[in-house]
Every structure is written in C-alpha cells, then in structure tokens.
Computed example of a mutant assay.
Amino acid sequence: MSSRKIGMWLYTNSGGDKIAKKIIKKLKDRDIETLDNINLRNAIARNSNIIYKGEKLNKLDLFFSYNAGEQTQYQVYLYQALNRIVPMINSYEAFALTEDKFHTSLVLRNNGIRTADYKLCHRDDGHELRKIIKKWDKMVYKPTDGWGGLGLTKIENEETLNMLMPFLNQMDLRYFYVEKFIDYDNTDFRVDIVDGKFVSCYGRKANGTDWRTNVTSGGSVFLREANDKVVDIAIKAANACGTDIAGVDIIYDRKREEYVVLEVNGIPAFATPEQEKMGLDFNDRKIDLIVDLIDRKTKKDR
C-alpha cells in the first residue's frame, strides 16, 4: 500500500496524456500513488472537505495542477481553497501572480530583474495614456490576465490609440496595462525551470511581419541554446515569482543591449511529439525533476 498519495491535473492534448502516464509510473516506483485527471470544476466542498468522486482531496499529501486551457472560475476558486490545506505545485500564490502580467512585472522589477517599461492606468485616465505614447513612441496594450498572445495590441502612435480607446471602453475594463515596445529581432528564448534548476531552452520566432512570437499567434519554435546570462535571469525570475515550475520568456533589447523578461509562465508546456522529432528532447529531464520535487515535498510534509 502506498504511503503517500497525490492528486494531479495535467493537460491531455499535444502529448500531455503520455507525459502524465510517465509521471505516474515514476511516482509509483517511489511508492507514491497518483489520483489522475482531477479537474476541480467537478469537485464539491462540504463542511471541512473538498470532495472529488468520493475522494477527500484535503487528505492528499500534495496536489499537482498543470492545465492552463481548461481553467474555470470555480476550478480556480477551489484551487485557492485547497492550497490553504494541501501543498501545491505550483502554489496558488505563485499561480495567481504569474497569471497577472502587471503583478509579475512589479515583482520582477522589485527583485532587480529587467522587464519592459510599463504603466498601469485607470480606465478613465486617457490623458495619461496619451502622455505615455508621446514619450515611448510605440507601446503594447496587454490584458493583464491573457495568455498565448491573445489580446496583445501594438499601438504605434496617438492616432492608433484614439482609434483603440472606444473598443477598450466597450470591454468595461477597470484599468489599462501597457508596456513600452522593445526593439528586438522578433525571436525570444523560452527557458524552462523546475525546482530552481535549468531544464531546457528553445526559441520562438514571429511569423512574417507579425511581432508576436507566441505559437498560438502564428509563431514557430526553433532549436536555440541558452547562454549563462539567459539561464541566470530565468532562474532568478522563477524564484522571484515563487514558482516550482516556470517557463520564462526572454528577449534581447537591441537598443539597450540587454536581456528583458517578457513573461513568467507557471504552466509551460512539455515538448509536443512534433517538437520532439525536430530535436526538443527535454521532456524526460523535466519529468524527472518534477518527480524529484513531488517526492521531496511530500516527504517534507510528512
């Protein structure tokens, strides 16, 4: 009988189901039982328990949540509640931080990590936005809770801003978050970190005339080596955000001649089967580090 039991919710598309099986097998070899595919959307809370298909999740030794595409408000709400009782990977605090671009940038800057210059303005402060575009020349509007490049809008001048403002106001936003547009070569580094250790690096490049490198926005993945500076920045960014697992997006500012962190992703994807064929071979190392992390955290808890 297993002495430790964890819950896991890992995405199943793009090879995620096979990754989950490998993790479960390696955990079993360490006498750790896994309750798989636990979507908190289908759980209920009753008195002191959070229950999923008869299992009391608050009795688990750890919960490993790793699914970005199927999150619901209810699921996230229970994620927060369960983390008050059970250790998480990533913790709810780290998850919530990395889901918010403004909060992430604020934390990184206060830890001495370079990010794009940014401004957060109240929705009614259009005057401040106009001052910013005159100063910066170009900027990028970002939804604070978006991912995959969705909603990113490049603002090239005050005329573009004036055209955009009515649409933003229709969305009933409470505030606007904008970043100064950085002169870069339309490629980035995606650096994976697990438990403070470097796992891998690959590059992404924008498609054609687009400036967004996100694959969901038309960008493509290519093999890319990370230098010591990039790895050091990524580890510091992951630690600053309190993440056990992180994918840190870094670009090179050609004007200032320095590396800049664009984003810290708390649920960085494993390499897909197609990406593995092109040479991205970091999945096994990432799995081993995650299993080591779960093993250590559940032992410590006990």
Rank of each mutant, 00 (worst) to 15 (best):
M165P: 00
V221F: 01
D192L: 15
S200M: 12
A116W: 11
K101H: 08
T153M: 15
D185T: 03
G149C: 01
G146Y: 06
T115H: 06
W147M: 12
E158L: 07
D124N: 13
D185H: 06
E156A: 00
R109E: 04
N207D: 03
R130H: 10
V199I: 11
Y202M: 14
K197H: 09
N110F: 04
F102A: 02
D172W: 06
V221L: 02
N162G: 02
T104M: 02
Y175S: 13
S105C: 08
V178I: 13
H122M: 07
N186C: 12
N162K: 15
F181L: 06
L168Y: 09
K180S: 13
V107W: 11
V194N: 13
T104K: 07
V178C: 10
P143A: 05
W147L: 04
L120T: 10
K134N: 10
G208V: 14
Y141T: 09
G208Q: 15
G149E: 00
L150Y: 13
S200H: 15
I155K: 11
E179N: 05
L152D: 02
N110P: 01
L164F: 14
W211R: 11
V191D: 07
F189D: 02
D195K: 12
K205F: 00
I193N: 05
C201N: 15
V194R: 10
T104H: 08
K135G: 03
M139P: 02
H122R: 14
K138M: 04
D185R: 12
G148S: 01
K197A: 00
L129Q: 08
V107M: 13
C201T: 09
G203S: 08
Y177W: 02
T160N: 14
G219N: 15
F176G: 02
R114W: 11
I182M: 07
R123G: 01
S220Y: 07
M139S: 13
L106H: 11
K197R: 10
P143Y: 06
I193M: 10
D117T: 09
D185E: 02
L152Y: 09
A116Y: 11
K138P: 01
S105E: 03
F222C: 03
K119E: 12
K131C: 06
